[in-house]
Amino acid sequence: MGSEVTKAPEVTLIKSEMEAAAARVAERAMNTTLDGVSGVLGDLFGGWFGDGIKQWRTRRLIDTLIKTKDHLEAAGIPIENAKSLPMGELYAIFEGCSKQEDISLTEMWSALLANAMNPTNDKYIDPSFSRILGNLSGLDAAILKYIKDFNRKRETLSATQREILNKAQTDRQIKGEKSFHEMIDKIEKEFSEWADNEHLSQFSEFSAENISYSISNLLRMGLIYPPEYTIPENLIQVGIQKKPRNENELVADDRRLRAYLRAMNDQAGAAIEKRSTLQSLVTIVRPNWPMIQRNETIQPAYSLSGLAIRFLLACSP
Rank of each mutant, 00 (worst) to 15 (best):
H199K: 09
N31M: 01
Y91W: 12
E182A: 11
Q173D: 11
L85F: 07
G222V: 01
S214C: 12
T33R: 14
E190G: 07
F206H: 13
N135Y: 02
I14A: 14
A111W: 08
E95L: 12
S3C: 07
E10F: 14
K99I: 04
S84V: 01
L72V: 02
F206P: 11
N210R: 15
H199E: 11
S16M: 10
D266N: 09
L41V: 05
Y146H: 15
Q55S: 14
I292G: 05
L307V: 00
P232R: 08
I66T: 04
V238D: 07
I211F: 02
V251R: 13
V25G: 04
I284G: 02
T156V: 09
S158K: 14
L223H: 01
P227A: 05
G306R: 09
E95Y: 12
Q293R: 14
Q279C: 03
S201E: 14
L257A: 12
N246C: 07
K167W: 12
A114H: 04
P232E: 09
E4L: 09
E155N: 10
E27S: 07
Y146I: 03
D43V: 06
W289Q: 07
S128P: 01
L157Q: 13
E193P: 03
N118P: 07
L312R: 01
E177N: 10
F129M: 00
L139I: 13
F129N: 00
M291E: 14
V238R: 12
V25H: 06
C97E: 01
G134M: 03
N210V: 05
A301N: 14
A82W: 06
E193V: 11
C315K: 00
I211H: 05
T106N: 14
W289N: 12
A259P: 00
M1L: 06
V11D: 03
T12I: 11
K178H: 13
V251D: 06
M221S: 06
